[in-house]
């Protein structure tokens, strides 16, 4: 297993919505993504636990791309991964962001 941490400076405030959102499952080829609104000095912090070692650069690329498209402030992203492909990671991140912004009725 490997633990990875990333931090990106945010420029956009998160739109209103839920306090947190969880999507995905910790299963082979899949991952779970937990988003939480937290005061982080305007940063987006990402914490990953992955079963697959040695993919730090790929994570960096995928998450860098996500952070460039969504330079969000004060957001913590926590991931438990069992070897998901970059495409699945991107999909789950988008789904999680969508779920976080769903307005409560």
């Amino acid at each position: 297993m490997e633990t990875l941490r990333f931090r990106f400076d945010g420029r956009q405030a998160l739109p209103a919505g839920e306090h947190h959102a969880l999507v995905g499952v910790v299963a082979s080829g899949n991952l779970e993504v937990l988003l939480e609104r937290l005061p982080l000095d305007g940063a987006m912090e990402i914490h990953i636990v992955t079963a697959a070692r040695g993919f730090g650069e790929i994570w960096q690329a995928v998450l860098g791309d996500f952070a460039a498209r969504h330079p969000l402030r004060d957001l913590r992203i926590s991931i438990n991964d069992v070897g998901a492909t970059p495409a699945v990671v991107s999909l789950r991140l988008s789904q999680a962001l969508e779920a976080l912004q769903e307005s409560a009725p």
Binding site: M1, H20, L22, V26, L34, N80
Partner: peptide, 27 residues
């Protein structure tokens, strides 16, 4: 919107017994 979760994922109450077996836990 009626569901209220107890000890939800933000509590990170994952199993401590999986890490030694190289299995990521779930929140």
């Amino acid at each position: 919107a009626s569901f209220r979760e107890f000890v939800g994922p933000c509590r990170r109450m994952a199993s401590p017994h999986l890490t030694p077996l190289d299995q990521p836990g779930a929140f």
